[in-house]
Amino acid sequence: MRDFLWKIAFILVAAIIWELIRLAGGYPKLLFPGVGSIAIALWTERLDIISKTLFSLKIIGMGLIVAIVLAMLGTFISISGKFFAEIVTDLMAIMHPLPGIAILPVAILWFGIGIKAILFVIVFSAVWPLINHFYTGFRSIPVNQLEVGRNLGLAGWELAMKVMLPASFPHILSGLRTGWARAWQASVAAELVFGAAGGQGGLGWYLYKKRFMMETPGVFAGMLIIVLIGIAVEYLIFAGVEKRTVRKWKTIIS
């Protein structure tokens, strides 16, 4: 509760500073909307914002599921032999530094402007950090636990699912956090660059439209929503999962 009050106080202070900067003036009013006008934009455009948010979440969710499945497969393949490990490590070294948005031109050429191209960019952006974390996790499992699993007669897929997966959960969790953040970034960035196709779009597309129409309060409202969703997912999903798993097992320092 005290934590919560501190957070509210922090937001209030930030809003007051924001307002002070706005009142100080010295630049076009249009560029720096007040807290009030952002709130009004949020309210009047709530339906549009909600539908755009849902669209974003849907496409990010789809992309993340594909990326997680691919990353798991990639990790299982890479731990199954030295040869594969080298291939996956090399691929990661090549692909990981490449910003997801840099792949957008290729995605448009391959899939055209539309949901498939965005999905491709999201999957590409999320899959490399996911593999990176999963692979690190699988390789930092306590040897004794792995050998107890083998001693019981577990091997291959069964050993991976029953022992390696839970034993590497701290890394899996941080991989999911990074993957989720990358997926968000990719979806917003992709829509900001080429907009949306067929009238459907997410929050990136919303930001793009508001900027195009010079509706600055709307731009800030969109950004605020992106931040709020980030916070919500962290507190409602990741923190909860963490508390029920690695914090409960004390496999991470809390």
Partner: peptide
Amino acid sequence: KPGPDRFMIFQGLDQLFPW
């Protein structure tokens, strides 16, 4: 190969599954 008819107990205190 390893099998449960010969069960190993290690020195390390981390052989129980923490989860």
